[in-house]
Simulated scan of single mutants.
Amino acid sequence: MNINLKKRRHLLATSAIAFLGWAPAQAMAQAQPFPSRPITFVVPFAAGSATDQLARALGQSLTNDTGQPVVVENKAGASGMIAAAAVAKAPADGYTVLITTNTTHAANEHLYKKLSYDPVKDFAPVTALGKGGQVMVVNPASGYKTVADVIAEAKKSPGKLNFGSGSSSSRIAGELFQQMAGVQILHVPYKSNPNAITDLLGGQITMMFADMSTGVPQIKSEKLRALGVTASKRSPMLPNVPTIAEAGVPGYEMGYWFAAYTPTGTPPAAIQRLNELLVRATASAQSKSFFDNSGSEAFTSTPDGLAKFQAAETRKWGDIIKAAGIQAE
């Protein structure tokens, strides 16, 4: 037999054996269950924030469910842009998840001229996680007892009343109220909602749209009066307070939401598994405690459902911001 032919056959046989040894290992690697190592939840806001609290509750549930640790990494600053940009550039393997809000994925593109990330192209939607509303509050000394009282005074004296805000959600709630009620109310900006609450308690501003965790304690102590909630239905935390839609502005609804995203290119199987885990996690005892104490509620979706919801919310926020004449920074 030709020596070269013998060498070729030997090489082919050796390659075949090597392949047979490699194939099962490769198959085992591909079949390895997800997750098989720790997952990182990146949060765009500081430790202790509502988003951070939710991320930690969800993370504990995922750990209980899978046996894998979940690390919560806070990357606060720049209205969430630092965290969003970091996740957009992370490996698309399903092990880095952005737990975020409407701030990074609906509002920022209308509030800033240039973003360090693309809220659509750079991310793969996983699931919505929760949503909540705010509460319209006034100082009891103001004499306003209903939403109708505020509207009547605002129409009587355009520009006389004012409202404070320390977040994009708080401000946009006030802008939408003006647009739908047909009134002019002066906006007073603050660095945070607690700062606005302080001035409201002191009588320096007329009203504000506060998040539940900030407003409810003041309402319960009767230091502030609640006139209406911004969500489409009443809050379990304030069951006797009507929605603003019920109180005189039909169709009014403005709230905030939480959602999970991974970098674009994440394998569909990993996204589906994360969706299953996170949807289940929103019903955990830890998550239920968060929702109950923050005045929000679980709200989940399919990945495609989140994409459609985000698109609708982005249009809504853009329309409100444009109508209010807010200039992008």
Rank of each mutant, 00 (worst) to 15 (best):
S192M: 11
S192D: 14
I197D: 00
T198W: 10
T198L: 12
D199C: 11
D199R: 09
L200F: 04
L200T: 00
L201S: 08
G202Q: 13
G203M: 14
I205M: 04
T206G: 13
M207R: 05
D211N: 09
D211M: 08
M212I: 09
S213D: 05
T214Y: 02
G215D: 01
G215F: 00
V216Q: 03
I219Y: 03
I219H: 01
I219L: 04
I219Q: 01
I219T: 02
E222V: 07
K223A: 05
K223N: 09
K223H: 12
A226I: 02
A226C: 04
S235W: 05
S235N: 07
P236M: 00
M237T: 03
M237I: 03
L238F: 02
V241N: 01
V241W: 01
P242S: 10
P242A: 10
I244Y: 05
I244T: 07
A247V: 00
G248V: 04
V249M: 04
P250I: 05
G251P: 03
Y252I: 00
Y252W: 07
E253W: 12
M254S: 11
M254W: 13
G255W: 02
Y256T: 13
Y256F: 15
W257E: 01
W257A: 00
F258L: 06
F258W: 09
F258A: 04
A259K: 05
Y261S: 02
T264M: 15
T264D: 14
T266L: 06
I271Q: 11
I271V: 15
R273Q: 15
L274M: 12
N275W: 11
L277Y: 09
A281G: 06
T282M: 08
Q286D: 14
S287W: 04
F290Q: 05
F291Q: 00
F291N: 00
N293S: 14
S294D: 13
G295V: 03
E297S: 15
T300Y: 04
T302K: 14
T302C: 14
P303M: 08
P303F: 08
G305S: 12
Q310G: 03
A311I: 14
A311Y: 14
T314H: 06
W317Y: 15
G318S: 10
D319Y: 13
K322Q: 14
